[in-house]
Design a protein around this nucleic acid. Structure first.
Length: 455
RNA sequence: UCCUCAGUAGCUCAGCGGUAGAGCGGGUGGCUGUUAACCACUAGGUCGUUGGUUCGAACCCAACCUGAGGAGCCA
């Protein structure tokens, strides 16, 4: 007899004629004089399956020993429940595969998120984290579906790199050297020069876009920034599409379409889990997601955004002034207070953006864009890339970067250059937005943050 | 890196100068088609660490450690 997932059991229209086999972990047990209720969960869905184990069935002596967390294998007949759930399993035999010791840390009561992080190996067995990681899996699938349906080619850009995607932050060094040689003899290192974990696959992505036209990457990314916030992790996953023959308009269109597609997909395929988030961690979640999936996003230029902020009458801690970067509080005001929906801000001053962004005709701004969402802020950052060889060379110089280090990147502009554009979407930030979970550490299985790389 | 807050039982917290507490979880017994079940009993603590103040410190002070929130940076 093969195991039937709990999700499938609970979705039965009519009770199967034959006995079925279910396997999972005990969530709770309640004893009566002549029988016990055991609820099991196997992660296939949020809901538990209630088991009725009568005194006298094979394994009943084990049932009385079962603690929360134990693993069990149960055969029985599916019957309509006398209680509030539709189905329950009338057990014909119960086998305890492995009991949980008395100090199993996950209780039936609510735990703090901080405590659950300290038991990251067990937290997927909780309702909340089971739901988070089912949604994470579904969203990863939907990302591939979105791009594959559009004919984008999935490219695996390198994890180890010797090139710095300037402006993307501090890098982790990868080395086989130790002691002094680290600094004095980098040429003796494994790759013959200093190498690092990637902070972005964009530059490599551009080379493939300039061959296969539309590509995307989806993989881990590493930043050695000493950030202590609820939306930064040292290791996270990023989606980076890159499109040839595409300008900033097309780039913004794609980013908005993608966020909308993913939200709609979650509403359609993760309903039970979203309902759970809506009830327990974010009361307005489903309403907000529905709003996002139905309405169009707002779009303002940086210049317009600065004007809105200046005329807002708000007292901001940091000044609003043309030429300065928008602060978190400014972004929050735009998306949460003013527009109350996702907003794309575009055409930023060149002075606050990296060398590869395309300079606009006004000579002051670059064709950059950030997609901001309520509650999180920046979820997408992207730009049209500078495709003009002379302008790119000038930009490298302005940013004190040597053309030699970027020779292959510059080559793209020498041999059949085309306008092209792309963006990066923080996968965990998307998950925070879709689930309502407030901390990035709680949407990634084993979070890495400064001072913490357990498990 | 900066600013703020918090570390008391396995978990969530109360106690805020004078003998260390509750609920949940664990153990034992009882009761019941129960569903964060219920009732009784019971075990469980160098009060983050190190110094200091005091007759006396979980409580006041200092430093450090850990965690969280925010800023910057970004996704």
């Amino acid at each position: 007899m093969s195991r039937m997932p709990v999700s499938q059991v609970l979705n039965c229209e009519t009770a199967p004629a034959e006995p079925i086999l279910v396997q999972g972990w005990v969530r709770t047990r309640r004893d009566s004089k002549a029988f016990s209720f055991v609820e099991i969960n196997d992660g296939s869905c949020l809901a538990n399956l209630q088991i009725i184990a009568d005194q006298g069935i094979p394994g009943y002596e084990d049932v009385l020993q079962l603690r929360t967390g134990a693993s069990v294998s149960i055969t029985g007949n599916l019957v309509e429940s006398q209680g509030k759930q539709k189905w329950e399993l009338q057990a014909t035999s119960v086998e305890m595969l492995g009991n949980a010791e008395e100090d199993f840390p996950l209780q039936k009561k609510g735990h703090s998120m901080e405590f659950l992080r300290s038991i990251a190996h067990l937290r997927p067995r909780s309702n909340l984290f089971g739901a988070v990681f089912r949604v994470r899996s579904r969203m990863a699938y939907a990302i591939h579906q979105f791009f594959q349906d559009k004919g984008f080619v999935y490219v695996h850009t390198p994890i180890i790199t010797a090139s710095d995607c300037e402006g993307a932050g501090e890098m982790f060094r990868v080395t086989t050297l130790d002691g002094e040689e680290l600094d004095t003899a980098p040429e003796k290192d494994f790759f013959g020069k200093p190498s690092y974990l990637t902070v972005s696959g964009q530059l490599e992505g551009e080379t493939f876009a300039c061959a296969l036209s539309n590509i995307y990457t989806f993989g881990p990314t590493f930043r050695a920034e000493n950030s202590h916030t609820s939306r930064h992790a040292s290791e996270f996953w990023m989606v980076e599409p890159e499109m040839a023959f595409c300008d900033l308009q097309g780039d913004m269109d794609l980013a908005e379409e993608m966020v909308k597609y993913l939200v709609t997909d979650a509403l359609e395929h993760c309903r039970e889990d979203l309902q759970f988030f809506n009830s327990f961690i974010d009361k307005g979640l489903i309403e907000r997601l529905q709003f996002v999936s139905e309405r169009s996003f707002e779009r303002v230029s940086y210049t317009e955004a600065v004007e809105l902020l200046e005329n807002s009458g708000e007292k901001f801690e940091y000044p609003v002034e043309y030429g300065l970067n928008l602060q978190s509080e400014h972004e929050r005001w735009l998306t949460e207070e003013h527009f109350k929906c996702p907003v794309t801000v575009y055409n930023y001053p060149a002075t606050v953006k990296p060398f590869y962004m395309r300079r606009n005709d006004d000579d002051k701004t670059v064709a950059a864009m950030d997609l901001l969402v309520p509650g999180i802020g920046e979820i997408v950052g992207g730009s049209q890339r500078e495709e003009r060889l002379d302008v790119l060379r000038e930009n490298l110089k302005h940013h004190d970067l040597s053309e030699e280090d970027y020779w292959w990147y510059v080559d793209l502009r020498k041999y059949g250059t085309v306008k092209h554009a792309g963006f990066g979407l923080g996968f965990e930030r998307l998950l925070m937005f879709v689930t309502g979970v407030a901390n990035i550490r709680d949407v990634i299985p084993f979070p890495r943050t400064p001072g913490s790389a357990d498990f």
